[in-house]
Simulated assay, not measured.
Amino acid sequence: MRWTHPELGRISPAEFIPIAEETGLITPLGDWVLRQACKEATKWPSHVSVAVNLSPLQFRNSGLASDVRDILGETGLEPSRLQPEVTESVLLDESDNNLRLLQELRQLGVKLVMDDFGTGISSLSYLRSFRFDKIKIDRSFISDTPMRKVICSHAPYRHST
């Protein structure tokens, strides 16, 4: 998401998202972004998905899953084509509530993505608390690692409870 201001030009989300989070505007802004992304994605080929970042602060809204369900219903986007992306901080903050919301989102049929893994207080043990459909590892997490090669398996990882 980018904001084009009439006088200041293009403003990075790194500048305005923290302000939206501080002022409480992140929830209506996040709903608007999700709605617009889902509307646009309905115009794409049916095999193409859309990824939308969710702020950790959006998880304070206990109705997050019902909001997502309503937006999917309103726009007509198949739930499996939506990939909400969350950061690992969602697993750190109020984890019981956030895990419940993640499970509610999963029940809608969306594909949940861990975004930017490795930018915070990273521990692979966080990945045991919830089975994500995709994990995006931040480049900074592996760039300082003394290894020659990173091997990624195409097989889904197994989650034990």
Rank of each mutant, 00 (worst) to 15 (best):
E88A: 07
I137A: 05
S160V: 13
L57V: 09
R106T: 03
P79K: 01
A14E: 03
D144T: 09
R2W: 12
T87C: 05
W3P: 01
R2D: 15
T4W: 12
P79I: 01
R100M: 12
F141E: 01
A155M: 12
V86T: 05
P6Q: 11
L92G: 09
R131T: 03
R158S: 09
Q58F: 02
G76W: 03
Q107W: 12
L25P: 05
G76K: 08
S66F: 13
E74Y: 07
E40Y: 11
Q107D: 15
I135R: 04
R128M: 11
R81G: 06
S153Q: 12
D31G: 09
E78S: 08
K149H: 12
L77I: 10
V50W: 00
L64S: 03
M147W: 08
T119M: 08
R158E: 14
R81I: 10
R35D: 15
D144Q: 15
K39T: 11
P84H: 02
D115N: 06
P45A: 07
L99Y: 08
F16P: 04
S143H: 14
V48P: 08
W3R: 04
A41N: 00
P56L: 10
L82V: 03
D96T: 10
E104W: 07
S95G: 03
L124Y: 06
V110R: 01
E22H: 10
K136A: 07
E40Q: 15
L102N: 00
E22T: 08
L108M: 08
S160D: 09
W44P: 09
E7M: 07
D116A: 04
N98C: 03
Q58E: 08
E15F: 06
L77G: 04
L101M: 09
R148C: 11
L108D: 01
A37E: 06
A20S: 15
R60K: 14
V48N: 13
A65Q: 03
V86K: 00
V110F: 00
V48T: 11
L77M: 14
G9I: 03
A51Q: 00
P146I: 11
E40F: 12
S125G: 10
T23L: 14
D31N: 14
R139E: 05
C38E: 00
G76L: 10
F117A: 04
C152F: 15
V150G: 06
R128L: 15
E7T: 05
I17A: 10
G30S: 05
H5E: 13
L127T: 01
P13L: 05
L72R: 00
E15P: 00
K134C: 13
P79D: 04
S95H: 10
Q103K: 15
G73E: 08
V48G: 09
N97P: 07
F132V: 01
Q83F: 06
